Simulated scan of single mutants.
Amino acid sequence: MAVEQAKITFYKVNQAGFYRWGENENPEFGGAAGILAELQGWSRGKQLAMTKTYEPADGSDLLPVYLMDITTDQNGCLVTMWNQTPATEGKVASAMGNSAVGNTEVVMNDIPEGGIPGFATYFWFMPDAGVFASIRFQHLITGQKPMQEFMESYLGQYSGNVVLTEPDPGVDVELLGYRQSSAHPVRTDVYPRFRTQLMRRAGEYDLLLEQAHRIRKIHRKTTLRLNRPEELAFWQKAYQIATLRRPQNLPDIIKFKYEVKAEMNRDQVQEIINSWLADHDREWDDYGFLLSGEQSPHWLSHSIARDEFPLDVDRNNLEIVNPESLLRAITGGLDEILALIR
């Protein structure tokens, strides 16, 4: 075993199950514990490639994910997922870092037959408490959004609550509705939902709301994807305003930071906080609020229930942390980890 630094971030499970149309608070049936238990049974004996529950829409940020493992103990349930990364005609690309801008050398490496290029992500669920944590080791991405999409797509297409009917000609599958169990009637007035939100430490957001009238500047860190026309246009406009020369060879993703003067009220600050908590999934994605009379901004990310912990784990290989060893390490540091949300 070896001690590795793990960054742990807690999330609240806002919705998990089947909800009546227009109702977001209480499910008609379902729940996080039932979903995980059923998912464990559904995946048993399946090949990895057969566990994909959704196909990303064209132009979507999401890529396919697969269920690699579910392991449980007395404290919770660890879900290990495999996140697919892009490939070209059975090869993955690597740009040589020592090559020149404008003449970058790209090496294409073969993917073995049946291989799925990607990386692992880990999610530790405590379903009875309605929370879970993403656990990151060597990668910067939590994979929380693809996991959320995976769970919701599983509920809507593969769970035991799904009721199918004979499809019309030319249709592969036709959904009749959902039901709680075979003893219950089929319903068409409910829909599947699995939605989450970052958990926060108390204090900082309350301060920003109470002191909204003192905000005089907003700092923004964001990641721009230059393959999106609207984000490319924003980046180009920023360079034009700053009278900077744009590079000829554009990267796919850039880190962008800017600041603007602002006057805000409590409702506007609350709207930014809510939107950021619901959509935050990247390291370089933050808002900082500078109050009058202060020199440093108050960053939203500093109030996230997140910290680094040394975990003594085994690895199955260079990429995969052994699930049993990870659960043991979490149990060994349980009090310190849960202090983030207590």
Rank of each mutant, 00 (worst) to 15 (best):
G90H: 01
D314R: 09
G102Q: 03
R136Y: 04
G293A: 02
W42D: 06
T121K: 08
M108R: 14
E210R: 15
L209Q: 09
E271Q: 02
V162W: 07
A2P: 13
L318G: 13
D172Q: 14
N24C: 13
L198H: 12
G102V: 08
V173T: 12
D286Y: 00
P229L: 15
R179E: 10
S296M: 12
H298Y: 10
Y54C: 09
Y66K: 02
K237P: 00
F256M: 04
R342C: 11
A57Q: 12
M81H: 05
E55N: 15
A129F: 00
A202I: 15
R193A: 10
F289R: 04
S153A: 15
S292T: 09
L155Y: 09
I215C: 05
P229D: 14
L226N: 04
K7T: 14
G31F: 05
N26H: 07
Q84C: 02
H213T: 05
T51Q: 10
G102A: 08
Q197N: 08
D281V: 01
P185W: 11
F132H: 01
Y11V: 09
E319H: 01
V173G: 06
E319W: 03
T243P: 00
V3H: 14
L327E: 02
L155S: 05
A100N: 07
M96Y: 11
K255S: 10
P117L: 01
L244C: 05
Y191R: 14
A129H: 00
L340N: 03
V79M: 06
R193S: 07
E319S: 03
I341G: 04
R266K: 11
E4N: 11
S303K: 02
R220H: 14
L164C: 13
G30A: 09
F150V: 08
L207K: 10
S303H: 01
V186Q: 12
P229S: 15
S94T: 10
G41H: 10
E174N: 07
A49F: 11
T121C: 12
K12L: 06
H298M: 09
R179G: 08
E105T: 14
D73Q: 02
H298D: 00
I337K: 04
N161R: 12
G333H: 13
M264R: 03
R195G: 09
Q40K: 14
E324W: 04
E23Q: 09
W82K: 03
Y66T: 02
V321E: 02
E55L: 15
P229R: 12
D58P: 15
G332P: 03
G114T: 01
F10T: 10
A183F: 14
Y154C: 11
Q248S: 14
G97E: 05
G114Y: 02
T9H: 10
D172P: 10
E210Y: 13
K217C: 08
E28R: 15
Y11F: 15
G102C: 08
A33V: 02
L209T: 04
G30T: 08
R315A: 11
S43F: 13
P86Y: 11
R306I: 01
